[in-house]
Design a protein around this nucleic acid. Structure first.
Length: 429
RNA sequence: GGAGAAAUGGCCGAGUGGUCGAAGGCGCGCGCCUGGAAAGUGCGUAUACUCCAAAAGGGUAUCAAGGGUUCGAAUCCCUUUUUCUCCGCCA
């Protein structure tokens, strides 16, 4: 959520920057300005009325107290009646205004949450993934010849059972078996350990969150259909660890000494992915439940882009250690998420499918999430200021697993990267 | 799930109808004292919205959340949430 201050003080800049995302903000800004003026007027009038009531009650109170002390009960009663009569009108009026103020505030909020985050100035213009800018690439793309796709390998070595998942739950809920299961566990530990080493604090958050949390990170109201919803208790299965982990900081005012906040968490992620079918979602490419290790940072505004670079370098190191061919893309305006100011996507090359698979997305949200979360810190001049939030996957498992299986296959086995072997306890499948 | 008790500022804790944004303490900040530190001592120390060009200052709201009673609510009533104790169930 953008701050009202920004929208009202620099409307031209907001319009210009959002054009990069292909979003026409002009009308929405007018609406927001109008709604906010209305809200202010109502609030000012209401405050005046309430002030008047408070004043009268205070005056009457002093008088009533004095009379009672002197035992002049009748006179006290009559002042009560008089005041009641005088304030009756005011009370009626302020009740009405109060509900008006509430609706106008709600409307303002509804419009405000429609406004996407401003893209950073380095974000390239563009509409689709075609327009993303490749920052750099690394690793060696193996030859395609004789490579089987991971779903065939999974069946051949009996390490991932998609059919069994269908029986238990449905499509998109595979069962990992034997070395497949161990490999999953190894990857989670490998990622977590490296994150901890880089200064992140490991947390184990709940896998279900309440409405407030889903609102806090912006899953609600717009992405309601993406989440599994347990209606009996009104809880949502998390689509990413970002939701519970970032909400840890909701409604917090941090001190200088609390910063920077660096958290990492492993969680399963649950996504309904309604409406996506076909070959792009085959095998591990798109699942309803998958494992991911997430990193989250909370930084002072002036440090956040440096932190973003650190995070990108960190994720790159992990992929390098696994020996996977990769490329880093700076997303164009049209391909970026609603809340992001700057996003780098990591893609690894999948040899048998001959395509790039997105395995991580590292973003700086600047104060966009913090504003909604009310996440602030006390700056040098003692004022509270919004912090910047960043997050990234380090990493999402299924596509890493797919790439590992496909790229490292030999005729009769799959080679486990050396760095992982201490975690798996075996060197090949 | 049943019965009972409770929820107050960063923390502890007082406050059962009035001048209470809230005593006192701890913590924290700034000073004084000291050669320096501790102790002592003085002052300050919530958030959001809003008025004012800004500062100073003012207004409104907030004592778990939402409603109600009252001239007036942290205090009384109702609903919800959470916590604790006992019982039941249970990995």
């Amino acid at each position: 959520m953008l701050t009202l201050k920004l929208i009202e003080n620099k409307p031209e800049e907001v319009v210009a920057r959002l054009a990069v995302k292909g979003f026409d903000a002009a009308r929405l800004i007018d609406e927001i300005t109008m709604l906010n003026d209305k809200r202010k007027n109502i609030q000012a009038e209401l405050d005046g009325l309430l002030a008047e009531q408070n004043r009268m009650a205070k005056e009457a109170g002093v008088e009533i107290g004095r009379l009672k002390k002197e035992g002049r009960m009748d006179e006290a009663e009559s002042i009560k009646l008089q005041t009641a009569e005088k304030t009756n009108d005011l009370r009626e009026k302020s009740k009405g205004l109060e509900s008006e103020a509430k609706t106008s505030e709600q409307k303002l909020h509804e419009s405000l949450v429609l406004m996407p985050n401003l893209p950073h100035e380095s974000v390239p213009r563009g509409r689709t993934a075609e327009d993303n800018f490749m920052v750099r690439s690394g690793g060696i793309i193996p030859p395609k010849s004789g490579k089987l796709p991971h779903w065939d390998l999974a069946a051949r070595y009996d390490i991932i059972d998609f059919e069994l998942g269908n029986k238990l739950t449905g499509a998109g809920f595979p069962v990992y078996k034997g070395k497949g299961a161990k490999l999953q566990r190894a990857l989670v530990s490998f990622f977590l350990d490296h994150n901890i080493e880089a200064g992140y604090l490991e947390v184990q958050p709940p896998y279900m969150v309440n409405e407030d949390s889903a609102f806090g990170t912006g899953q609600l109201p717009d992405k309601e259909g993406q989440m599994y919803h347990a209606t009996a208790d009104n809880l949502y299965l998390i689509p990413t660890a970002e939701v519970p982990v970032t909400n840890i900081l909701r409604d917090c005012i941090l001190q200088n000494s609390d910063l920077p906040v660096k958290l990492t968490a492993y969680t399963p992620c649950f996504r309904r992915e309604a409406g996506s079918y076909g070959k792009d979602v085959r095998g591990l490419n798109r699942l309803h439940q998958f494992d991911k290790v997430e990193i989250v940072q909370v930084r002072k505004p002036e440090e956040s882009y440096q932190a973003l670079d650190e995070m990108v370098a960190h994720v790159e190191k992990l992929i390098n250690k696994l020996g996977l061919p990769y490329r880093i893309m700076r997303l164009c305006g049209g391909d970026m998420s609603f809340a992001s100011a700057l996003t780098y996507d990591f893609e690894v090359y999948s040899a048998a499918q001959e395509r790039w698979l997105e395995v991580s997305s590292v973003s700086n949200f600047e104060s966009f999430q913090a504003n909604r979360l009310k996440l602030r810190y006390r700056s040098e001049n003692k004022k509270t200021e919004l912090l910047h939030t960043l997050n990234g996957s380090s990493l999402a498992l299924p596509r890493i697993l797919a790439a590992l299986l496909e790229n490292n296959q030999t005729e009769n086995s799959i080679i486990i990267p050396e760095t992982l072997q201490t975690y798996t306890g075996f060197s090949s499948i």
